[in-house]
Design a protein around this nucleic acid. Structure first.
Length: 554
RNA sequence: UGGGGUGUCGGCAAGCGGUAAGCCAACGGGUUUUGGUCCCGUCAUUCGGAGGUUCGAAUCCUUCCACCCCAGCCA
Protein backbone atom coordinates (compact mmCIF):
# COMPACT_ATOMS: atom_id res chain seq x y z
CA UNK A 1 0.00 0.00 0.00
CA UNK A 2 1.22 3.42 -0.90
CA UNK A 3 1.17 5.88 1.94
CA UNK A 4 0.70 9.44 0.96
CA UNK A 5 3.29 11.81 2.33
CA UNK A 6 3.06 15.56 2.24
CA UNK A 7 5.98 17.57 0.92
CA UNK A 8 7.55 17.97 4.34
CA UNK A 9 7.57 14.25 5.05
CA UNK A 10 8.95 13.69 1.57
CA UNK A 11 11.76 16.12 2.38
CA UNK A 12 12.42 14.35 5.66
CA UNK A 13 12.60 11.04 3.79
CA UNK A 14 15.12 12.52 1.39
CA UNK A 15 17.22 13.93 4.20
CA UNK A 16 17.31 10.57 5.90
CA UNK A 17 18.11 8.79 2.66
CA UNK A 18 20.86 11.21 1.71
CA UNK A 19 22.39 11.08 5.14
CA UNK A 20 21.93 14.76 5.78
CA UNK A 21 20.37 13.68 9.06
CA UNK A 22 20.22 10.28 10.71
CA UNK A 23 17.25 11.03 12.93
CA UNK A 24 14.39 13.48 13.27
CA UNK A 25 14.03 16.15 15.91
CA UNK A 26 11.49 18.94 15.52
CA UNK A 27 10.29 21.74 17.69
CA UNK A 28 7.21 23.88 18.33
CA UNK A 29 8.39 27.39 19.24
CA UNK A 30 5.49 29.61 20.37
CA UNK A 31 6.07 33.12 21.53
CA UNK A 32 4.39 33.40 24.94
CA UNK A 33 2.36 36.45 24.11
CA UNK A 34 -1.11 35.04 23.52
CA UNK A 35 -3.33 32.00 23.63
CA UNK A 36 -2.96 29.12 21.22
CA UNK A 37 -5.62 28.77 18.55
CA UNK A 38 -6.50 26.08 16.07
CA UNK A 39 -3.97 27.49 13.62
CA UNK A 40 -1.30 26.66 16.17
CA UNK A 41 -2.85 23.23 16.54
CA UNK A 42 -2.04 22.62 12.88
CA UNK A 43 1.59 23.59 13.46
CA UNK A 44 1.73 21.53 16.64
CA UNK A 45 0.31 18.48 14.92
CA UNK A 46 2.76 18.78 12.05
CA UNK A 47 5.88 19.05 14.18
CA UNK A 48 4.87 16.58 16.85
CA UNK A 49 3.40 14.02 14.47
CA UNK A 50 6.40 14.04 12.17
CA UNK A 51 8.74 13.55 15.09
CA UNK A 52 6.64 10.69 16.36
CA UNK A 53 6.29 9.00 12.98
CA UNK A 54 10.05 8.98 12.51
CA UNK A 55 10.78 7.82 16.02
CA UNK A 56 12.15 11.22 16.94
CA UNK A 57 11.42 13.91 19.45
CA UNK A 58 9.82 17.30 19.46
CA UNK A 59 10.78 20.16 21.73
CA UNK A 60 8.38 22.65 23.19
CA UNK A 61 10.35 25.86 23.22
CA UNK A 62 9.20 29.29 24.22
CA UNK A 63 10.61 31.92 21.91
CA UNK A 64 10.77 34.58 24.59
CA UNK A 65 13.21 37.03 23.09
CA UNK A 66 11.01 40.08 23.49
CA UNK A 67 10.53 41.09 27.13
CA UNK A 68 7.99 43.78 26.38
CA UNK A 69 5.35 41.43 25.05
CA UNK A 70 5.65 38.18 26.89
CA UNK A 71 3.98 36.99 30.01
CA UNK A 72 3.99 34.09 32.38
CA UNK A 73 0.25 33.61 32.03
CA UNK A 74 0.72 32.66 28.39
CA UNK A 75 3.48 30.17 29.13
CA UNK A 76 1.13 28.33 31.45
CA UNK A 77 -1.79 28.35 29.06
CA UNK A 78 0.36 27.15 26.17
CA UNK A 79 1.74 24.29 28.22
CA UNK A 80 -1.79 23.34 29.21
CA UNK A 81 -3.08 23.50 25.65
CA UNK A 82 -0.29 21.44 24.12
CA UNK A 83 -0.71 18.87 26.85
CA UNK A 84 -4.45 18.81 26.23
CA UNK A 85 -3.84 18.17 22.56
CA UNK A 86 -2.14 15.03 23.70
CA UNK A 87 1.47 15.47 22.71
CA UNK A 88 4.57 14.65 24.69
CA UNK A 89 7.33 17.16 24.39
CA UNK A 90 10.92 17.54 25.40
CA UNK A 91 11.42 20.49 27.67
CA UNK A 92 9.88 22.98 27.91
CA UNK A 93 12.86 24.98 26.80
CA UNK A 94 13.22 28.72 26.72
CA UNK A 95 15.09 30.81 24.22
CA UNK A 96 15.99 33.04 27.14
CA UNK A 97 18.02 30.21 28.62
CA UNK A 98 20.35 30.56 25.65
CA UNK A 99 20.93 34.29 26.04
CA UNK A 100 24.45 33.83 27.38
CA UNK A 101 25.41 31.44 24.60
CA UNK A 102 23.85 33.74 22.02
CA UNK A 103 25.87 36.60 23.42
CA UNK A 104 29.11 34.62 23.07
CA UNK A 105 28.26 33.76 19.49
CA UNK A 106 27.55 37.40 18.78
CA UNK A 107 31.00 38.33 20.02
CA UNK A 108 32.39 35.63 17.77
CA UNK A 109 30.66 37.18 14.82
CA UNK A 110 31.99 40.59 15.75
CA UNK A 111 35.51 39.20 16.11
CA UNK A 112 35.15 37.66 12.70
CA UNK A 113 34.24 41.05 11.31
CA UNK A 114 30.72 39.90 10.44
CA UNK A 115 28.78 42.10 12.84
CA UNK A 116 29.02 45.68 13.99
CA UNK A 117 27.50 48.10 16.41
CA UNK A 118 25.41 50.69 14.61
CA UNK A 119 24.43 54.07 16.06
CA UNK A 120 21.73 54.85 13.54
CA UNK A 121 18.29 55.70 14.96
CA UNK A 122 15.34 53.50 13.98
CA UNK A 123 14.25 56.12 11.47
CA UNK A 124 17.69 56.32 9.96
CA UNK A 125 17.95 52.57 9.74
CA UNK A 126 14.76 52.53 7.74
CA UNK A 127 16.06 55.15 5.32
CA UNK A 128 19.41 53.39 4.90
CA UNK A 129 17.68 50.08 4.29
CA UNK A 130 16.33 51.28 0.96
CA UNK A 131 13.06 50.04 -0.46
CA UNK A 132 11.78 46.95 -2.24
CA UNK A 133 13.07 48.27 -5.53
CA UNK A 134 16.04 50.37 -4.44
CA UNK A 135 19.02 48.90 -2.71
CA UNK A 136 20.09 50.23 0.64
CA UNK A 137 23.29 51.98 1.53
CA UNK A 138 25.91 51.13 4.09
CA UNK A 139 25.63 52.47 7.57
CA UNK A 140 28.36 55.00 8.38
CA UNK A 141 29.21 52.80 11.37
CA UNK A 142 29.65 49.69 9.28
CA UNK A 143 33.44 49.82 9.21
CA UNK A 144 34.22 50.20 12.86
CA UNK A 145 37.14 48.12 14.04
CA UNK A 146 36.61 44.80 15.73
CA UNK A 147 37.98 46.28 18.95
CA UNK A 148 35.60 49.22 18.89
CA UNK A 149 32.65 46.95 18.08
CA UNK A 150 33.53 44.59 20.88
CA UNK A 151 33.92 47.45 23.32
CA UNK A 152 30.65 49.07 22.30
CA UNK A 153 28.77 45.77 22.34
CA UNK A 154 30.03 44.98 25.85
CA UNK A 155 28.99 48.41 27.00
CA UNK A 156 25.58 47.86 25.40
CA UNK A 157 25.21 44.79 27.54
CA UNK A 158 26.50 46.66 30.55
CA UNK A 159 23.65 49.10 30.24
CA UNK A 160 25.62 52.19 29.34
CA UNK A 161 23.29 53.23 26.54
CA UNK A 162 19.63 54.10 26.41
CA UNK A 163 16.95 52.14 24.59
CA UNK A 164 17.12 52.44 20.85
CA UNK A 165 20.42 54.26 20.77
CA UNK A 166 22.43 51.46 19.23
CA UNK A 167 22.04 48.02 17.76
CA UNK A 168 24.27 45.16 16.85
CA UNK A 169 23.88 44.37 13.17
CA UNK A 170 25.05 41.57 10.95
CA UNK A 171 27.37 42.75 8.20
CA UNK A 172 25.86 41.12 5.14
CA UNK A 173 24.82 43.08 2.07
CA UNK A 174 22.91 46.35 1.92
CA UNK A 175 22.39 45.80 -1.80
CA UNK A 176 20.72 42.44 -1.41
CA UNK A 177 17.44 42.01 -3.24
CA UNK A 178 16.27 40.23 -0.10
CA UNK A 179 15.61 42.97 2.40
CA UNK A 180 16.21 40.60 5.28
CA UNK A 181 19.86 40.38 4.27
CA UNK A 182 20.42 44.13 4.44
CA UNK A 183 22.42 44.11 7.66
CA UNK A 184 19.62 42.87 9.95
CA UNK A 185 19.52 43.86 13.59
CA UNK A 186 20.78 41.15 15.93
CA UNK A 187 20.44 42.95 19.25
CA UNK A 188 18.41 45.88 20.40
CA UNK A 189 18.71 47.72 23.69
CA UNK A 190 15.66 47.25 25.87
CA UNK A 191 15.86 48.17 29.52
CA UNK A 192 12.97 45.93 30.32
CA UNK A 193 12.39 43.19 32.85
CA UNK A 194 12.24 39.72 31.33
CA UNK A 195 9.69 37.23 32.68
CA UNK A 196 12.43 34.70 33.39
CA UNK A 197 15.66 36.66 33.33
CA UNK A 198 14.52 39.55 35.45
CA UNK A 199 16.76 42.54 34.96
CA UNK A 200 19.81 40.52 33.99
CA UNK A 201 19.72 41.76 30.41
CA UNK A 202 19.13 45.07 28.74
CA UNK A 203 19.97 43.86 25.25
CA UNK A 204 17.75 41.29 23.63
CA UNK A 205 18.31 39.17 20.53
CA UNK A 206 16.03 39.55 17.53
CA UNK A 207 14.13 36.65 16.01
CA UNK A 208 16.34 36.19 12.97
CA UNK A 209 19.51 36.10 14.98
CA UNK A 210 18.16 33.89 17.72
CA UNK A 211 15.87 31.40 16.09
CA UNK A 212 18.25 29.40 13.95
CA UNK A 213 20.72 29.21 16.79
CA UNK A 214 18.06 28.04 19.21
CA UNK A 215 17.35 25.26 16.73
CA UNK A 216 21.05 24.59 16.35
CA UNK A 217 21.67 24.47 20.08
CA UNK A 218 18.83 22.01 20.57
CA UNK A 219 20.00 19.80 17.73
CA UNK A 220 16.82 20.27 15.76
CA UNK A 221 16.88 18.55 12.38
CA UNK A 222 13.79 20.00 10.80
CA UNK A 223 12.62 23.45 11.77
CA UNK A 224 9.08 23.68 10.47
CA UNK A 225 7.47 27.09 10.27
CA UNK A 226 5.01 29.08 8.26
CA UNK A 227 5.39 30.61 4.83
CA UNK A 228 6.23 34.15 5.85
CA UNK A 229 9.62 32.93 7.05
CA UNK A 230 10.62 31.70 3.64
CA UNK A 231 12.31 35.03 2.96
CA UNK A 232 14.20 34.65 6.19
CA UNK A 233 15.67 31.28 5.39
CA UNK A 234 18.76 32.71 3.65
CA UNK A 235 19.42 34.64 6.83
CA UNK A 236 18.71 31.62 9.01
CA UNK A 237 21.30 29.73 6.98
CA UNK A 238 23.76 32.65 6.89
CA UNK A 239 24.11 33.01 10.66
CA UNK A 240 24.60 29.30 11.12
CA UNK A 241 27.13 28.97 8.32
CA UNK A 242 28.99 32.06 9.41
CA UNK A 243 29.37 30.58 12.88
CA UNK A 244 30.06 27.09 11.62
CA UNK A 245 27.64 25.51 14.06
CA UNK A 246 25.27 22.58 13.60
CA UNK A 247 22.84 23.30 10.78
CA UNK A 248 19.15 22.35 11.00
CA UNK A 249 16.90 22.60 7.95
CA UNK A 250 14.04 25.08 7.86
CA UNK A 251 10.96 24.10 5.87
CA UNK A 252 7.92 26.31 5.51
CA UNK A 253 4.24 25.45 5.10
CA UNK A 254 1.02 27.45 4.76
CA UNK A 255 -0.72 28.44 7.94
CA UNK A 256 -4.32 27.55 8.59
CA UNK A 257 -7.22 29.83 7.78
CA UNK A 258 -10.80 28.82 8.41
CA UNK A 259 -14.13 30.16 7.21
CA UNK A 260 -16.20 32.38 9.50
CA UNK A 261 -13.37 33.00 11.91
CA UNK A 262 -9.97 34.65 12.26
CA UNK A 263 -6.59 33.48 13.47
CA UNK A 264 -5.11 36.90 14.05
CA UNK A 265 -3.92 37.27 17.63
CA UNK A 266 -4.54 40.98 17.33
CA UNK A 267 -8.17 40.59 16.30
CA UNK A 268 -8.81 37.83 18.81
CA UNK A 269 -7.42 40.04 21.54
CA UNK A 270 -9.63 42.90 20.38
CA UNK A 271 -12.71 40.68 20.60
CA UNK A 272 -11.85 39.84 24.18
CA UNK A 273 -10.97 43.38 25.20
CA UNK A 274 -14.00 44.93 23.59
CA UNK A 275 -16.27 42.49 25.40
CA UNK A 276 -17.79 41.18 22.19
CA UNK A 277 -16.89 37.75 23.51
CA UNK A 278 -16.58 36.76 27.14
CA UNK A 279 -12.91 35.85 27.21
CA UNK A 280 -10.17 33.88 25.52
CA UNK A 281 -12.07 30.70 26.32
CA UNK A 282 -15.41 31.93 25.04
CA UNK A 283 -16.77 28.89 23.18
CA UNK A 284 -17.10 30.94 20.00
CA UNK A 285 -13.37 31.61 19.88
CA UNK A 286 -11.03 29.55 17.68
CA UNK A 287 -8.63 29.34 20.61
CA UNK A 288 -7.87 25.89 21.92
CA UNK A 289 -9.28 26.83 25.31
CA UNK A 290 -12.39 28.16 23.57
CA UNK A 291 -12.85 25.03 21.51
CA UNK A 292 -12.28 22.91 24.61
CA UNK A 293 -14.98 24.78 26.49
CA UNK A 294 -17.18 24.45 23.44
CA UNK A 295 -16.89 20.70 23.81
CA UNK A 296 -14.41 19.86 21.08
CA UNK A 297 -12.19 16.92 21.92
CA UNK A 298 -8.47 16.93 21.28
CA UNK A 299 -8.96 13.83 19.15
CA UNK A 300 -11.34 15.66 16.86
CA UNK A 301 -8.94 18.56 16.49
CA UNK A 302 -6.06 16.25 15.67
CA UNK A 303 -8.27 14.43 13.20
CA UNK A 304 -9.11 17.77 11.63
CA UNK A 305 -5.45 18.74 11.34
CA UNK A 306 -4.80 15.43 9.70
CA UNK A 307 -7.60 15.88 7.21
CA UNK A 308 -6.67 19.40 6.08
CA UNK A 309 -3.26 18.27 4.92
CA UNK A 310 -0.08 20.28 4.54
CA UNK A 311 0.87 22.37 1.56
CA UNK A 312 2.28 25.74 0.60
CA UNK A 313 -0.86 27.11 -1.02
CA UNK A 314 -2.77 29.88 0.76
CA UNK A 315 -6.15 28.47 1.57
CA UNK A 316 -9.22 28.77 3.73
CA UNK A 317 -10.53 25.54 5.16
CA UNK A 318 -14.29 25.14 5.47
CA UNK A 319 -15.25 25.16 9.16
CA UNK A 320 -17.77 22.47 8.22
CA UNK A 321 -14.84 20.06 8.13
CA UNK A 322 -14.04 20.77 11.77
CA UNK A 323 -17.70 20.28 12.64
CA UNK A 324 -17.73 17.03 10.72
CA UNK A 325 -14.78 15.76 12.76
CA UNK A 326 -16.41 16.38 16.11
CA UNK A 327 -19.80 15.06 14.99
CA UNK A 328 -18.20 11.84 13.83
CA UNK A 329 -16.55 11.29 17.17
CA UNK A 330 -19.44 12.33 19.38
CA UNK A 331 -21.94 10.29 17.39
CA UNK A 332 -20.09 7.22 18.55
CA UNK A 333 -19.47 8.25 22.13
CA UNK A 334 -22.06 10.70 23.39
CA UNK A 335 -24.87 9.56 25.63
CA UNK A 336 -28.30 10.52 24.34
CA UNK A 337 -30.57 12.63 26.51
CA UNK A 338 -33.76 14.55 25.88
CA UNK A 339 -34.40 18.22 26.53
CA UNK A 340 -37.04 20.60 25.28
CA UNK A 341 -35.88 24.09 24.45
CA UNK A 342 -39.15 25.75 23.52
CA UNK A 343 -41.76 23.81 25.50
CA UNK A 344 -45.41 23.44 24.74
CA UNK A 345 -47.60 21.22 26.89
CA UNK A 346 -48.77 17.90 25.55
CA UNK A 347 -51.66 16.28 27.41
CA UNK A 348 -52.50 12.65 26.88
CA UNK A 349 -56.19 12.57 27.71
CA UNK A 350 -56.58 8.80 27.85
CA UNK A 351 -53.55 8.27 30.08
CA UNK A 352 -54.40 7.61 33.76
CA UNK A 353 -54.16 10.74 35.83
CA UNK A 354 -51.53 10.61 38.55
CA UNK A 355 -49.73 7.64 36.99
CA UNK A 356 -46.05 7.76 36.25
CA UNK A 357 -43.98 5.18 34.43
CA UNK A 358 -40.23 4.92 34.23
CA UNK A 359 -39.26 3.71 30.80
CA UNK A 360 -35.95 2.47 29.46
CA UNK A 361 -33.96 4.72 27.20
CA UNK A 362 -30.91 3.49 25.30
CA UNK A 363 -27.89 5.62 26.07
CA UNK A 364 -26.28 5.26 22.67
CA UNK A 365 -27.88 3.45 19.73
CA UNK A 366 -24.51 3.34 17.94
CA UNK A 367 -23.33 0.91 20.58
CA UNK A 368 -24.79 -2.58 20.41
CA UNK A 369 -24.05 -3.14 24.07
CA UNK A 370 -25.26 0.23 25.16
CA UNK A 371 -26.38 0.78 28.70
CA UNK A 372 -29.77 2.35 29.38
CA UNK A 373 -31.26 4.81 31.77
CA UNK A 374 -34.78 5.52 33.00
CA UNK A 375 -37.01 8.28 31.75
CA UNK A 376 -40.29 9.32 33.35
CA UNK A 377 -43.58 9.36 31.46
CA UNK A 378 -47.00 10.60 32.52
CA UNK A 379 -50.17 12.28 31.36
CA UNK A 380 -48.53 15.67 31.02
CA UNK A 381 -45.42 16.22 28.98
CA UNK A 382 -43.62 18.98 27.20
CA UNK A 383 -42.69 18.74 23.58
CA UNK A 384 -40.91 21.12 21.28
CA UNK A 385 -43.07 23.95 19.97
CA UNK A 386 -41.80 23.27 16.46
CA UNK A 387 -43.04 19.71 16.71
CA UNK A 388 -46.66 20.72 16.52
CA UNK A 389 -48.52 22.74 13.96
CA UNK A 390 -52.20 23.14 13.28
CA UNK A 391 -51.52 23.55 9.58
CA UNK A 392 -48.86 21.05 8.52
CA UNK A 393 -46.90 21.78 5.37
CA UNK A 394 -46.16 19.02 2.89
CA UNK A 395 -43.96 16.28 4.29
CA UNK A 396 -44.38 17.42 7.87
CA UNK A 397 -43.85 14.26 9.91
CA UNK A 398 -44.51 15.74 13.32
CA UNK A 399 -47.68 16.34 15.32
CA UNK A 400 -50.72 18.00 13.82
CA UNK A 401 -54.44 17.36 14.27
CA UNK A 402 -55.14 13.73 13.49
CA UNK A 403 -51.49 12.78 13.03
CA UNK A 404 -49.83 9.94 14.89
CA UNK A 405 -46.22 10.12 16.00
CA UNK A 406 -43.92 8.24 18.31
CA UNK A 407 -42.69 9.73 21.53
CA UNK A 408 -39.13 8.49 21.72
CA UNK A 409 -38.74 5.42 23.92
CA UNK A 410 -42.37 5.76 25.04
CA UNK A 411 -45.66 5.49 23.16
CA UNK A 412 -47.42 6.33 19.93
CA UNK A 413 -49.76 9.27 20.34
CA UNK A 414 -52.38 10.69 18.04
CA UNK A 415 -53.25 14.34 18.16
CA UNK A 416 -56.89 14.95 19.06
CA UNK A 417 -56.90 18.71 19.39
CA UNK A 418 -55.23 21.80 20.75
CA UNK A 419 -55.99 25.01 22.61
CA UNK A 420 -54.97 28.53 21.82
CA UNK A 421 -54.85 31.76 23.76
CA UNK A 422 -56.53 35.01 22.75
CA UNK A 423 -53.64 35.76 20.43
CA UNK A 424 -54.11 32.48 18.65
CA UNK A 425 -50.92 31.00 20.05
CA UNK A 426 -51.11 27.30 20.72
CA UNK A 427 -51.05 26.78 24.50
CA UNK A 428 -51.50 23.05 24.76
CA UNK A 429 -51.82 20.06 22.54
CA UNK A 430 -54.05 17.11 23.28
CA UNK A 431 -53.68 13.57 22.21
CA UNK A 432 -54.52 9.95 22.94
CA UNK A 433 -51.89 7.29 23.35
CA UNK A 434 -51.87 3.69 22.29
CA UNK A 435 -51.14 1.55 25.38
CA UNK A 436 -49.99 -1.24 23.07
CA UNK A 437 -47.11 0.86 21.80
CA UNK A 438 -45.15 0.95 25.04
CA UNK A 439 -41.46 1.33 24.34
CA UNK A 440 -42.09 2.84 20.96
CA UNK A 441 -43.30 -0.09 18.87
CA UNK A 442 -46.65 -1.73 18.22
CA UNK A 443 -47.77 -5.36 17.89
CA UNK A 444 -49.33 -4.62 14.52
CA UNK A 445 -46.03 -3.18 13.34
CA UNK A 446 -47.55 -0.03 11.96
CA UNK A 447 -45.15 2.76 11.18
CA UNK A 448 -45.15 6.39 12.03
CA UNK A 449 -42.96 8.86 10.20
CA UNK A 450 -42.18 11.11 13.09
CA UNK A 451 -40.45 10.50 16.39
CA UNK A 452 -40.45 13.32 18.88
CA UNK A 453 -38.44 13.89 22.01
CA UNK A 454 -40.23 15.06 25.14
CA UNK A 455 -39.84 15.77 28.82
CA UNK A 456 -42.23 14.64 31.54
CA UNK A 457 -43.79 17.73 33.11
CA UNK A 458 -43.42 17.01 36.81
CA UNK A 459 -39.88 15.72 36.63
CA UNK A 460 -38.56 18.25 34.15
CA UNK A 461 -35.24 19.71 35.16
CA UNK A 462 -34.66 23.33 34.33
CA UNK A 463 -31.32 23.95 32.71
CA UNK A 464 -29.55 26.69 30.82
CA UNK A 465 -28.54 26.05 27.25
CA UNK A 466 -26.06 28.15 25.32
CA UNK A 467 -26.46 27.86 21.59
CA UNK A 468 -23.50 29.02 19.55
CA UNK A 469 -23.18 30.06 15.97
CA UNK A 470 -20.23 31.18 13.86
CA UNK A 471 -18.19 34.07 15.20
CA UNK A 472 -18.45 36.10 12.03
CA UNK A 473 -21.07 36.37 9.33
CA UNK A 474 -18.59 36.27 6.47
CA UNK A 475 -16.87 33.09 5.30
CA UNK A 476 -13.73 34.76 4.03
CA UNK A 477 -12.50 37.04 6.78
CA UNK A 478 -9.21 37.65 5.01
CA UNK A 479 -10.62 39.72 2.16
CA UNK A 480 -13.30 42.07 3.43
CA UNK A 481 -15.64 44.16 1.34
CA UNK A 482 -14.45 47.69 0.57
CA UNK A 483 -14.94 50.05 3.47
CA UNK A 484 -15.80 47.29 5.94
CA UNK A 485 -13.83 46.21 8.93
CA UNK A 486 -13.68 43.04 10.97
CA UNK A 487 -16.20 44.16 13.57
CA UNK A 488 -18.79 44.83 10.89
CA UNK A 489 -18.96 41.09 10.45
CA UNK A 490 -19.23 40.09 14.07
CA UNK A 491 -22.19 37.74 14.35
CA UNK A 492 -24.48 39.38 16.90
CA UNK A 493 -26.50 36.16 16.99
CA UNK A 494 -23.52 33.96 17.74
CA UNK A 495 -24.78 33.31 21.26
CA UNK A 496 -28.35 32.44 22.21
CA UNK A 497 -29.32 31.64 25.78
CA UNK A 498 -32.20 29.30 26.36
CA UNK A 499 -33.95 28.18 29.52
CA UNK A 500 -34.77 24.61 28.72
CA UNK A 501 -36.31 21.60 30.41
CA UNK A 502 -34.45 18.32 30.49
CA UNK A 503 -35.05 14.78 31.61
CA UNK A 504 -33.87 14.06 35.19
CA UNK A 505 -30.90 12.02 34.02
CA UNK A 506 -29.17 15.30 33.22
CA UNK A 507 -28.49 15.77 36.93
CA UNK A 508 -26.08 12.84 36.89
CA UNK A 509 -23.71 14.51 34.46
CA UNK A 510 -20.41 15.87 35.66
CA UNK A 511 -18.90 19.12 34.44
CA UNK A 512 -17.17 18.38 31.18
CA UNK A 513 -19.61 15.57 30.38
CA UNK A 514 -20.54 15.37 26.72
CA UNK A 515 -24.00 14.39 25.55
CA UNK A 516 -26.24 14.45 22.57
CA UNK A 517 -29.52 16.20 23.15
CA UNK A 518 -31.74 14.15 20.91
CA UNK A 519 -32.65 15.86 17.66
CA UNK A 520 -30.71 18.98 18.69
CA UNK A 521 -27.00 18.46 18.84
CA UNK A 522 -23.99 17.74 20.97
CA UNK A 523 -23.44 19.54 24.25
CA UNK A 524 -20.93 19.75 27.05
CA UNK A 525 -21.70 20.50 30.68
CA UNK A 526 -20.08 23.85 31.40
CA UNK A 527 -18.26 24.76 34.59
CA UNK A 528 -20.89 27.42 35.23
CA UNK A 529 -23.28 24.64 36.28
CA UNK A 530 -24.38 24.69 39.91
CA UNK A 531 -25.46 21.41 41.42
CA UNK A 532 -28.37 19.98 39.52
CA UNK A 533 -28.78 23.15 37.53
CA UNK A 534 -26.71 22.46 34.47
CA UNK A 535 -25.37 24.88 31.93
CA UNK A 536 -24.90 23.22 28.58
CA UNK A 537 -22.74 24.61 25.78
CA UNK A 538 -23.64 23.46 22.31
CA UNK A 539 -20.60 21.94 20.66
CA UNK A 540 -22.23 21.45 17.28
CA UNK A 541 -25.78 20.90 16.10
CA UNK A 542 -27.00 17.74 14.49
CA UNK A 543 -27.47 17.98 10.75
CA UNK A 544 -30.98 19.10 10.03
CA UNK A 545 -32.32 18.08 6.66
CA UNK A 546 -35.83 19.16 7.54
CA UNK A 547 -34.58 22.69 8.14
CA UNK A 548 -32.85 22.50 4.80
CA UNK A 549 -36.01 21.41 3.04
CA UNK A 550 -37.95 24.22 4.65
CA UNK A 551 -35.36 26.78 3.63
CA UNK A 552 -35.62 25.66 0.06
CA UNK A 553 -39.39 25.76 0.17
CA UNK A 554 -39.29 29.39 1.06
C1' U B 1 8.94 48.52 -11.40
C1' G B 2 13.27 44.16 -6.53
C1' G B 3 13.15 39.42 -4.09
C1' G B 4 10.59 35.07 -2.26
C1' G B 5 6.27 31.92 -2.96
C1' U B 6 1.55 29.80 -4.85
C1' G B 7 -2.01 28.55 -8.77
C1' U B 8 -5.71 20.85 -9.84
C1' C B 9 -13.83 20.13 -8.46
C1' G B 10 -17.85 25.02 -4.35
C1' G B 11 -13.76 24.20 0.00
C1' C B 12 -9.20 21.33 1.42
C1' A B 13 -5.83 18.19 -1.27
C1' A B 14 -3.27 13.74 -4.02
C1' G B 15 -0.64 13.44 -8.54
C1' C B 16 6.46 13.76 -9.46
C1' G B 17 5.85 11.94 -18.32
C1' G B 18 1.49 6.95 -19.22
C1' U B 19 -3.73 9.07 -19.77
C1' A B 20 -7.40 13.40 -12.83
C1' A B 21 -7.09 9.73 -5.47
C1' G B 22 -9.49 10.90 -1.10
C1' C B 23 -12.10 14.08 2.41
C1' C B 24 -15.71 18.14 3.40
C1' A B 25 -19.82 20.50 1.12
C1' A B 26 -23.81 19.80 -2.34
C1' C B 27 -27.42 16.75 -4.77
C1' G B 28 -30.38 12.07 -5.58
C1' G B 29 -32.09 7.21 -3.38
C1' G B 30 -32.41 3.25 0.55
C1' U B 31 -32.43 1.94 5.88
C1' U B 32 -33.89 4.04 10.55
C1' U B 33 -37.65 4.23 17.67
C1' U B 34 -33.01 10.91 16.50
C1' G B 35 -35.93 14.40 9.33
C1' G B 36 -29.28 12.08 13.40
C1' U B 37 -26.21 7.81 12.18
C1' C B 38 -25.45 4.18 8.35
C1' C B 39 -25.61 2.45 3.14
C1' C B 40 -25.76 3.30 -2.30
C1' G B 41 -25.20 6.75 -6.17
C1' U B 42 -24.06 11.69 -8.73
C1' C B 43 -20.35 15.55 -8.57
C1' A B 44 -13.01 18.10 -12.85
C1' U B 45 -12.64 15.00 -20.90
C1' U B 46 -9.90 18.62 -17.29
C1' C B 47 -5.42 20.68 -14.06
C1' G B 48 -4.51 29.79 -14.16
C1' G B 49 -3.94 31.18 -19.94
C1' A B 50 -1.27 30.54 -24.57
C1' G B 51 2.46 28.17 -27.26
C1' G B 52 6.16 24.18 -27.62
C1' U B 53 8.78 19.16 -26.71
C1' U B 54 6.80 13.98 -26.77
C1' C B 55 3.63 8.25 -29.39
C1' G B 56 1.75 10.39 -24.80
C1' A B 57 2.00 16.46 -20.51
C1' A B 58 -1.54 18.53 -14.55
C1' U B 59 3.43 16.62 -14.62
C1' C B 60 9.21 18.91 -19.10
C1' C B 61 10.35 23.86 -21.81
C1' U B 62 8.89 29.02 -23.18
C1' U B 63 5.83 32.95 -22.23
C1' C B 64 1.92 35.54 -20.17
C1' C B 65 -1.74 36.24 -16.14
C1' A B 66 -3.57 36.20 -11.09
C1' C B 67 -2.90 35.98 -5.98
C1' C B 68 0.13 35.88 -1.27
C1' C B 69 4.60 37.45 1.66
C1' C B 70 8.86 41.01 2.61
C1' A B 71 10.91 47.82 3.51
C1' G B 72 9.62 46.24 13.00
C1' C B 73 15.40 47.90 17.04
C1' C B 74 7.78 41.98 16.27
C1' A B 75 7.82 36.80 15.81
Amino acid sequence: MKVYKDFIRQAVDEDLASGRFDHVHTRFPPEPNGYLHIGHAKAICISFSIAKEYGGKCNLRFDDTNPSKEEREFVDSIVEDVRWLGFEWQGPFFASDYFERLYELAEQLITKGSAYVCDLTPDEVRVYRGTLTEQGKNSPYRDRSVEENLDLFRRMRAGEFPDGSRTLRAKIDMASSNINMRDPVMYRILHREHHRQGDKWCIYPSYDWAHGLEDSIEGITHSLCSLEFEDHRPLYDWFIDELGVYHPRQIEFARLNMTFTVMSKRILRALVESGLVEGWDDPRMPTLCGLRRRGYTSDSIREFCDKIGVSKADSIVDIALLEHCIRTELNLSAKRLMAVMHPIKLIIDNYPEGQIEWLDAVDNPEDENSSTHKIPFSRELFIERDDFTANPPKNYFRLSPGAEVRLKHAYYVTCTGYKTDVAGEVTEVHCDYDPESRGGGTPDGRRVKGTLHFVEANNAMPCRIRLYDRLFTRANMIELEPGKEVNDYFNADSLELIDALAEPELASLPIGGRIQLLRHGYFIVDKDSEGDFKVLNMTVSLKDTWAKIQQKGG
